[in-house]
Design a binder for these strands. Structure first.
Lengths: 161, 161
DNA sequence: ATAATTAAGTCAATATGACTGACCTAAATA
DNA sequence: TATTTAGGTCAGTCATATTGACTTAATTAT
């Protein structure tokens, strides 16, 4: 199987090379999140808090439903973490025109934290990406995009329209 | 800040575009792991089990210490998950020449599972990557590699020498 | 030969992030 | 008026991880 594969595939599509991609994704993603993790720890927050802060910062006045769609967790899971952020005044809640909905936005304090966390990740990406051609960078983004499942591709487009 | 950035940076290095990379990493990594997760669930295993199986499969006769270096978790964390895999005969333990060490390898049962899980991820990467040029694929891998912290780059090289 | 270090393991307590299931309220829509 | 939708809540559970303290056995250094 692997032998046949080695014969038929070009080098960069060999199973062995593909496995390296698996590992690169694992290592790079872990290191990508480790920077913010250290700051969050001091506030007794975790990665779940980061994700909420990120997406609320991304789309002001996002509703609970929209947030759940992006995060793909249950509302019970969201509840605890979100309430902490609201109680500690990183996020402020208001009522939508549809009075059943709630709209979430970052407070000034929340924006400050969001900025602090995002800056780490943005700078890391910038530092890395700077060395590459526009062609390579676009390829990188397109490959990542193609790895997303159809439904979530739509979600990605929605938050970026 | 962002305005200045927009003026000085080429489009593909704008903060807004960089933020898309943050999201692409989040969405793609989540979907990348979701396939194996479904199989693991049936066995009452989680992602932690997957990682152990993957790296034991990658490097036969890996020691506990080496495995901890790769996974970057505590031995107490490893213990519970690894013991499950050993008890359920996915992994077999033997003693090294240095009798303090233990060597881990996959049983036939473990190899079967490893293969099942890896195949999902390998095929996913292949499906995606097929559409791209060698140049793009190499760029993709290099960018991911550059996102890894120095120490972990060494670990990556070690398991791939 | 003894002391120090290393590899591995264990016990206990704790935190975080997630889940299911059941149930509730209020508002909007059919 | 009935149904659906948005959101919330209570309770219990599970998986993954942590810190800290301590043990055993084997290897290495003095």
């Amino acid at each position: 199987m692997t032998d046949l594969n080695s014969l038929l595939s070009p080098f960069f599509l060999n199973d062995k090379e593909i496995r390296k991609v698996i590992e690169l994704l694992f290592f790079s993603y872990r290191d990508f999140t480790s920077g913010p993790d250290k700051i969050l720890e001091k506030l007794n927050f975790g990665r779940a808090h980061h994700r909420i802060i990120y997406f609320v910062g991304k789309k002001n006045n996002i509703t609970i439903k929209e947030l759940l769609l992006v995060l793909q967790i249950t509302k019970q899971s969201l509840s605890r973490v979100l309430n902490q952020l609201v109680n500690e005044k990183f996020i402020i809640v208001s009522t939508g025109i549809d009075k059943r909905t709630k709209k979430l936005s970052l407070t000034e304090k929340g924006e400050k934290l969001e900025n602090q966390l995002s800056t780490i990740q943005i700078n890391k990406i910038k530092r890395v990406i700077n060395k590459y051609s526009e062609e390579n960078i676009n390829g990188f983004k397109e490959i990542l995009y193609d790895m997303i499942e159809t439904d979530n591709k739509k979600t990605f487009q929605q938050i970026n329209d």
